[in-house]
Amino acid sequence: MPDADLKPETLFKYVLRLADDQLILGQRLGEWCGHAPTLEEELALANIGLDLLGQARSLYSYAGEIEGKGQGEDDLAFLRPEREYLNALLVEQPNGDFAVTIVRQVFHAAFMVPFWRTMTASSDETLAAIAAKSLKEVEYHLRHSSEWLIRLGDGTEESHRRSQDALEELWGYASELFEMDALADEMLDCGIAVDAAALKAEWDATVNAVLERASLTRPMDSWSQSGGRSGRHSEHLGHILSELQYMQRTYPGLSW
């Protein structure tokens, strides 16, 4: 850890936020398996899900090290109560139809690309290394989901309507990605964290360009929701956790 003043709990929480985002979104994509629009897309969605699960695993392992209480990736991923999950609300939103899943992915990837790119310069070597690997992955996620959104937006009347609806449905969850709070500021000051607020301009440019090619309209900034970073979630997370944690909760303390 680079800064002597930095409390391990702060870094621990910061890494957990990141890990939870990737786990919950990976879990959501796992729900698609066996139900995708085409066989080719079946494989594509699983690839993205596997990338996110891999990122989550690295981040949880690192969080466990920082905490120093002997918790491994699974303890952190499976054994916290709902209020202790720190993911953004966006990633816990239900898959909906394919348009909702794709819009959610575009929003997430358009944020994670500049996020991981900036994080590669972090003074925390572990995070910088995870960022370098993850950047290549999310660049592809962005390409894949953008190309789909363009086809859905500019495809048929029905697909246009569905993707415009999906945009409206998820728009208000995007702003939480750029939120900074005392914890994030502290991490930023010691050179570890990314200034999420500063990524908004690039996100806007990326999303606007995709929406234009997709003949979709950028929704109005008329509402927004947040709370995930401090563990105040929508009702959806509880259901995700009831599946995610089922085995660990039913059979406590066993190896699998």
């Binding site: 786990l23 796992g30 729900e31 494989l43 699983a46 695993r57 085995m247």
Partner: peptide, 25 residues
């Protein structure tokens, strides 16, 4: 596929998702 969201560890979850993906391939 029915068990991907309930796999008991992250390692098992990733392996299962990769395996079911292979079946699709």
């Amino acid at each position: 596929g029915n068990w991907i969201t309930r796999a008991p560890t992250l390692r098992r979850k990733a392996a299962l998702l990769a395996k079911v993906q292979d079946e699709g391939g």
